[in-house]
Nucleic acid binder design. Structure first.
Length: 282
DNA sequence: TTGTGTTTTATTGCCTCC
DNA sequence: GGAGGCAATAAAACACAA
């Protein structure tokens, strides 16, 4: 991007305040009265029909109704004119900027007053405000975009942290499950032990371990009649002895989160709300 | 000096509102 | 139907590097 342009305060079209009213260039003078020559030296040698047409339309839109003069005079003007853009002076722009800060819309009275104060055509003032509003809108959009971007980045960071935490917890659960399984295998309980599961807010839930086992095992496990090997039996026992692990984290391995079995005879300390949370969270 | 990118001023066409 | 607003665009003015 090129550096920001600096207006020249002594530019040729500086016709406000700096000069007394009598010496100021009339708004249309630079446009239409460039000396007596038809086309000043160093300018375009030809004006297309479209140029004239456009300039004419512009001219009519420029003047307020009461400012419009004789059409023949206008034609004369336009046969002698050249379209030339005039930059506003620093003073004019500052004045307009201040006015814009006060109110970015332009009522007719204000437009006329500003035009008078600045030695511009009302139409020029209107155009300046229009363009200024467009610039303001663009800047505003950029600001909004930046704000949204920042918001997104923050949420993304938060999300990433949660993912990381989830992975850690997942690993922890797997380790604990493994440890428990090993322990159970090495030291099988002499007598059935009640497993007490409780959380901080709800009543404790007591599950007989035999219940936990029997519900899954009863219809398939008969030591006398079984033809499964010892190894298979151990694996089966490990799985069946700790249904909690697979219930609480149903399918963590494949990240396919589903509801825990609501109909289980043992809820493992989860309240109804917990189930609801579970369902909604995934 | 010239080519190029940016900014500003102005035009055009369409839309809305009164 | 005219005035005024806006989006898109043209074109002049300008800055700056090569």
């Amino acid at each position: 991007m090129a550096g920001r342009r600096v207006y020249s305060s002594n530019s040729s079209n500086s016709n406000i305040s700096v000069l007394p009213q009598s010496q100021r260039v009339e708004p249309f003078d630079p446009l239409f009265l460039q000396g007596s020559s038809f086309l000043p030296p160093g300018t375009r040698s030809m004006l297309s029909f479209e140029d004239v047409h456009r300039a004419k339309r512009s001219f009519f839109r420029t003047f307020d109704q009461e400012e419009n003069g004789d059409d023949d005079d206008l034609d004369e003007y336009f046969h002698q004119t050249e379209k030339k853009k005039r930059r506003l002076t620093v003073e004019q722009v500052q004045f307009l900027e201040k006015s814009f800060e006060v109110e970015n819309k332009l009522e007719p009275d204000r437009k006329i007053q500003l035009a008078k104060d600045l030695g511009l055509q009302p139409r020029q003032v209107a155009i300046w405000f229009q363009n200024r509003r467009a610039r303001w809108k663009t800047k505003q959009l950029e600001k909004d975009y930046d704000a949204l971007q920042a918001n997104f980045n923050s949420l993304k960071a938060e999300y990433d942290d949660l993912l990381e935490e989830k992975d850690k917890l997942k690993q922890e659960v797997l380790q604990l499950t493994d440890k428990l399984a090993t322990k159970e295998r090495d030291e099988p309980p002499q007598q059935p032990v009640d497993v007490v599961v409780a959380d901080q807010t709800g009543p404790e839930v007591v599950c007989k371990q035999e219940d936990m086992i029997s519900s899954s095992k009863s219809d398939m496990f008969d030591p006398d009649q079984s033809d499964v090997t010892q190894e298979e039996e151990d694996n089966l026992s490990n799985k069946l002895l700790h249904p909690a692990a697979s219930y609480i984290f149903p399918k963590l391995e494949d990240d396919d989160y589903s509801d825990p079995p609501a109909t289980s005879s043992c809820s493992f300390g989860f309240h109804v709300e917990d189930h609801a949370f579970w369902s909604s969270a995934y």
